[in-house]
Design a protein around this nucleic acid. Structure first.
Length: 953
RNA sequence: GCGGAUAUGGCGUAAUUGGUAGCCGCGCUAGACUUAGGAUCUAGUGGCGAAAGCCGUAACGGUUCGAGUCCGUUUAUCCGCACCA
């Protein structure tokens, strides 16, 4: 009887469920292993075949580790807060909680059919109050901690206060502190807190009615929805992830991520070493510029009126011919001369009103304006004009630069455009200078020697950098510093469907809700759009005030700002809930703590994390930050959350086309007919009515009413469709739904086929055609065990040596393959093994039982069925992984390829112990060997035992 | 522009350490069984050639007895970043 997966797969899924086979406990004698998938956002569209790819790979690994004797944590949950459900709510009025619940149920149903070994008793949902209690709790901790640069980690804000009171902080005296009002103190501390409220230039997306983090904006458009984004100054919550920039860079050396992902992260953090230098103003102004980067402890107050710039090229300081401020620079107002005022103010206004997209689209266009003011080059005492231009960014460094047009392409373009002087200060060699006015591009390379540069003239660039830094340090006007491109993460969203902030406002300052009152539950609202006054949707909630005395949420009407205060109206972003979920899985039902110390001591961190590389900057950065913070405060026990990361590649769609005649819209021409290309237009056709690129004409006529009477020009009686690799999407009719495939071929076939497609990490097109081969393989496997009468034909006689060798080779290869995540080659090995055992007519348990055990991680249903048919009553999930018996693999001879001048000509069988002399003799004795030797003596013979014989003539 | 990755039959791929290029599967061809085949089985299948053989891993060059693999240059595709001073 053929393998009946429709009966067998649900049977074992039920067995696993009813026996709690995938339940895992913390502790026990076994070594631990944590295999994690990036949990999905349950979208309305359900899963397509691309989604389970990573889950299948991680499931194979988890099952393999379990069979190898590990206690494996392999949980799953849902990233259930997020924009799509809320957008849907705005359109339809359906509460996001309802649609989310529905989508989760659908996801679960789809996932269950594939036979994953998830421990569902540990499921988490980010929108569940029992879960987001801990998201809120972490926020409170972030609020109550600051980054102490001296100890290099997060410390309680109370420690900072005690240090201030003890007079141990250079930036403020204990006396100043004592004299502050409560609000002033809170305002002061806000500059330190790891979660802080500040006026920030944010990415405001009018289309979504919310601000977005940098990683949620691509090319000036929102990732979700593709709406334009503009810069706007708003009072927002942010997380001070920049405080961890260095540790986020350093940590990359300890983890196993792909080199490209590490590079992406390094790029995103954008560490660059350079110098901060203070340039005095030529015109005395009234106030002293406020030093930046207080929390980093880089306090450098300047006596005279001056401003700070950042440069990575301190060696070019003698080549500065102008200074540039960003349009947002606070000094512009003060320094601009009367004659220039109108023009400068007009420019600043223009620059500020440009959208991000406009600005990015016109990067190559040079714009700017002279302020009329001058700075003094501290090393040359030269007077240098100060310009304003939007090529200097407010968010990086200090928003001010020293421009060295000869050695920076952007400064060069600016200088050319405004005809500012260009002065060469670096040359390939001391006498290789030329007139920069003749240059068409700047000399940006960080190599060469300094020229026209005072005391550093003649030094190479590297030494000159150090010399200039030393000099400005001596002069007290600068220091070596490191800048990061990474920005703090904006943490507020003006949206409904997210975690509420456990924050209320008193005198305009935020205060946290006591930890033991968490969770602060998301209130119900009637309307998911912003309020008429522009408040976020939580502004519609009528019961959204905090009663400090009774420690509860109360009606807004009770707000008196004495004991009842308004609550925060924005909610947390999507990455809040996904930043620490892996820790919660360790101890998901704990009401007392995020997770117990015992649980995290046991599991440590994630050993293997599998997910898409699209989360390489967003989620991965936030999660690493979140974990590092929890590590600092003694919760997490590892600095890095994910020991090893595998990025599964995207599965692309394979679209099919029919060709409609340009003249006759009812006529469809087969692909390879002459004239088809010129006279037809391709139209996407549903891949479900195409098989092997042949169109099912009847189904096509039924597909859409307008095709009901379609006529066809066929080739060989068939309609051949065209195809193309595109993104898998509904609009291209190329979406493959896993449920349909499970229905037709079974879960094991789907699992094997997804792995068989190619390396997990590689992007590859989905092509349903190939699945038949895997399906045939499954049935062939079945036939080794079961005959046509559904009788088990496995016997207890010893297997012959050849079969034992086959199965042992398979054990060795598959074990090795799984360990290096090469699942496609494992499937290939299974096929080879089954082919060989079939042709050897092997039905011996000795060879077949190990086959069941090693295929179990890949195809658990058929494996479980066969395992039981072999007389076992435990689950195959616990069948110990077999060891390869190397003695069976030993050969007594080897078939040597014989090459002449590197070209393989024939093979000869030689004993394993054959020497070079014996090999050469054998070649000389061989008729083909004689032909190639042509009577000559070889000039050289290369003999590599068990590899090759190469004869040079 | 910068950074990273990739490039092998008609298609997905394999070759783990520099050692027989194309395993496994799809597709295709021929045959068997069959009332039938989109079932199953058998054989074949990189190109050219009757064969011997020649050519062949994006292109060119190099190192080597020997290169898909190492090095250099170029091209193409994908991904990331993109005025980050």
């Amino acid at each position: 009887m053929d393998y009946n997966f429709r009966e067998i797969e649900p049977k074992w899924q039920r067995f696993w469920r009813e026996n709690g086979v995938y339940r895992v406990d913390n502790g026990g004698g076994k070594p631990h292993f944590y295999v994690l998938d990036m949990f999905p956002y349950p979208s309305g569209a359900g899963l397509h075949v691309g989604h389970p790819l990573g889950y299948i790979a991680s499931d194979i690994f988890a099952r393999f580790k379990r069979q190898c004797g590990y206690n494996v944590l392999h949980p799953m949950g849902y990233d259930a807060y997020g924009l799509p459900a809320e957008q849907y709510a705005i359109q339809t009025g359906q509460h996001p909680a309802v649609t989310t619940e529905k989508n989760i149920a659908r996801y679960r149903e789809q996932l269950d059919k594939i036979g994953f070994s998830f421990d569902w008793s540990r499921e988490v949902r980010t929108c569940d109050p029992d879960y987001y209690k801990w998201t809120q709790w972490t926020f409170v901790q972030l609020f109550n901690h600051y980054y102490d640069s001296r100890s290099g980690k997060a410390m309680p804000i109370n420690y900072l206060i005690s240090e201030i009171e003890a007079g141990n902080r250079p930036e403020i005296s204990s006396r100043q502190w004592t004299n502050m009002t409560e609000t002033e103190r809170q305002s002061f501390l806000m500059d330190y807190r790891l979660a802080y409220l500040a006026d920030t230039a944010v990415n405001w997306c009018p289309g979504l009615g919310t601000v977005l983090a940098n990683d949620e904006v691509v090319n000036g458009l929102s990732v979700r929805g593709g709406f334009p984004v503009e810069r706007k100054l708003m009072r927002q919550w942010s997380l001070r992830i920049t405080a961890y920039a260095q540790r986020l860079v350093d940590g990359l050396d300890e983890v196993e991520y792909s080199e490209s992902l590490k590079e992406i992260q390094r790029n995103w953090i954008g560490r660059s070493e350079g110098a901060a230098v203070w340039f005095p103003l030529d015109v005395p102004a009234t106030t002293v510029d406020k030093p930046t980067a207080l929390y980093m402890g880089q306090v450098n107050p300047q006596p005279s009126d001056s401003f700070e710039i950042f440069t990575t090229r301190p060696d070019t300081i003698f080549g500065v011919t102008f200074m540039v401020l960003c349009p947002e620079h606070e000094m512009i107002e003060r320094i601009t001369t009367a004659e220039c005022r109108d023009e400068v103010m007009a420019y600043v206004a223009w620059a500020k009103n440009r959208s991000e997209r406009e600005r990015q689209a016109e990067v190559k266009k040079v714009s700017g304006v002279f302020t009329g003011a001058y700075a003094i080059n501290p090393l040359t005492e030269e007077k240098i004009p100060i310009w304003v231009s939007d090529y200097v960014l407010a968010g990086y460094g200090t928003g001010a630069i020293m421009a060295v047009p000869a050695h920076d392409s952007r400064d060069f373009a600016f200088a050319k455009h405004f005809q500012l002087p260009i002065r060469q200060v670096v040359a390939p060699s001391i006498d290789a200078t030329s007139d920069p006015e003749t240059w068409t591009e700047s000399l940006d390379a960080k190599t060469g020697v300094c020229v026209n540069s005072g005391f550093i003239s003649g030094m190479n660039v590297k030494d000159a950098m150090k010399a200039v830094i030393t000099k400005v340090e001596e002069m007290g006007i600068g220091h070596k510093t490191i800048n990061y491109r990474l920005r703090d993460a904006i943490f507020s969203r003006q949206r409904y469907w997210g975690e509420p902030f456990p924050i209320y406002y008193k005198d305009g300052m935020p205060y946290t809700i006591p930890e033991d009152c968490l969770p602060l539950c998301l209130p119900d609202v009637k309307d998911f759009k912003p309020t008429s006054t522009g408040e976020p949707p939580l502004g519609h909630a009528t019961r959204w005030a905090w009663d400090v005395e009774n420690r509860q949420v109360v009606d807004n009407s009770l707000i008196d700002n004495k004991s009842v205060f308004p609550l925060e109206l924005s909610t947390m972003p999507g990455f809040a809930g996904s930043s620490g979920y892996y820790l919660r899985y360790m101890d998901p039902h704990n009401d007392e703590r995020y997770f117990s110390h015992q649980a995290v001591e046991y599991w440590q961190n994630v050993d293997l994390y599998v997910g898409g590389s699209e989360h390489g900057t967003g989620h991965m950065m936030y999660a690493r930050f979140w974990n590092k913070f929890l590590f600092d405060i003694g919760y997490a026990v590892k600095d890095e959350p994910f020991r090893k990361l595998i990025n599964q590649g995207m599965i692309q769609g394979r679209s099919n086309f029919v060709y409609r005649s340009k003249e006759d819209s009812n006529l469809f021409v087969s692909k390879n007919l002459p004239g088809r290309e010129e006279n037809t237009v391709p139209i996407h056709v549903d891949i479900n009515i195409v098989d092997n690129d042949l169109l099912d004409i009847e189904k096509f006529r039924q597909w859409r009413p307008e095709f009901a009477n379609a006529r066809f020009e066929l080739e060989d009686g068939k309609y051949v469709c065209g195809w193309e690799i595109e993104k898998m999407s509904k609009s291209m009719y190329n979406v493959q739904n896993p449920d349909d495939l499970v229905e037709r071929y079974g879960a094991d076939t789907l699992r094997l086929y997804e792995m068989f497609l190619g390396p997990v990490e590689q992007a590859k097109p989905w092509d349903t055609n190939g699945i038949e081969g895997v399906f045939r393989f499954i049935r062939k496997l079945w036939k080794l065990f079961v005959d046509d009468g559904d009788k088990c034909i496995v016997n207890d006689e010893p297997a012959d040596r050849k079969c034992l060798k086959t199965i042992n080779q398979a054990i060795k290869k598959v074990t090795d393959d799984i360990e290096r995540f090469s699942f496609n080659t494992s499937v290939s090995t299974f096929m080879i093994t089954v082919n060989e055992l079939t042709s050897a007519k092997c039905h011996s348990r000795q060879a077949l039982e190990p086959m069941v055990v090693i295929i179990a991680p890949f195809a658990p249903h058929i494996a479980e069925e066969l395992w039981h048919r072999l007389g076992n009553d435990t689950t195959v999930c616990d069948a110990p992984w077999p060891k390869c018996d190397e003695t069976l693999l030993v050969e007594d001879s080897f078939s040597y390829p014989v090459s002449f001048n590197g070209k393989m000509r024939f093979t000869i069988e030689l004993p394993i112990a054959a020497t070079q002399e014996e090999a050469l003799a054998a070649v000389k004795a061989h008729s083909v060997g004689q032909k190639w030797l042509d009577g000559k003596e070889p000039r050289k013979v290369i003999f590599v035992p068990k590899k090759i014989i190469n004869i040079v003539i």
